[in-house]
Design a protein around this nucleic acid. Sequence first.
RNA 1: GCCGGGGUAGCUCAGUGGUAGAGCACUGGUCUGAAAAACCAGGUGUCGACAGUUCAAUCCUGUCCCCCGGCA
Length: 306
Amino acid sequence: MKKNLPIIIAGPTASGKTELALGLASLLGAEIISADSRQVYKELTIGTAKPEGKWENGKYLVNNIPYNLVDFLYVEQTFNAGEFCNRSKKIQGNVPPQGTLPYIFCGGTGMYLDAFFFGMNELPKDENLRKELSLLSKPELHARLKAADPQSAAEIPEGNIQRTMRALEIYLLTKTPASVLRNKDKARDFTGKAFFIYLNPDKEILNKRIELRTKKMFEGMCAEASALLKKGHTKQTPALKSLGYPQAIEFLEGALKREDAIEKIITLTRQYAKRQRTWFNRYEGVMEINDLTHLSPEKIIKNFVN
RNA sequence: GCCGGGGUAGCUCAGUGGUAGAGCACUGGUCUGAAAAACCAGGUGUCGACAGUUCAAUCCUGUCCCCCGGCA
């Protein structure tokens, strides 16, 4: 097993990533870096399935294993792929003088993994400009993008206001079309970059796991949402747009019956898992595991030795 | 038992004498600093059953079955 390659454990939500990562980390003496855009929030734990841990000497520890990039932001703060890259690099830079400390990336936010392992173009960002742009209508935004950057406009549907705005933002800040500045290489081959374990359980099994997990976490989500509402946060707070929390809030407000809220969250989670599967399916050089029944960290390590 | 309403997609329902559509679900996909986000594409069907009228019936007629109200 090559020492200097990181391990990645990725896959759809509820596929058992965290458990496997902790098992591997404990065997290898590794640290975990979370690639999860929601577990970064301190106040969202149950609803994001963040592993329970405690802060000690500036490290979030789960069963004594350092679990990086979780539980460090407040809900009014934002996080993004670029920030993920910077922080991950910094953490990885903390290697001990002798040898290499192995790192296990674990998470379901494919965009973060893309950004870290295949690089991100240095593209500017401007919150104020974004606010200005958000006042424009979709057709207006798309028309402007078409004038400035026809290629991006052709690739981005008018309905997709986020990507339209971002492409336009890049053009306005750099005077160069985003389609020119962005890396065109869509290849996503992890060979030589990492040991990539793609947990992809059979759909029926994953759906069942999602159903059970959602039912189990609903009360906790409501408690978390309720506490945040009391502090003055609203549905508009970005972190509270995380999957399931809007439904928990609607339940708390009486707009949704309990069963309906739970059912809705299950559906949304299944749909999210599908998008994650679509994302990860295009990766090359990964070890895909569909059958979780005989999965063990020991077995995984054996596989890597060969 | 009688009276009324209804049986159309997985669900809720629209619709027409020329074999059918919406929303949601579902399926596939997009993705470069919001990504648990924001989108794109696709109709998946014995139109309750049987018979009749008709060139043609999911639609009209009859019988039957089932569901929901009301009266007994």
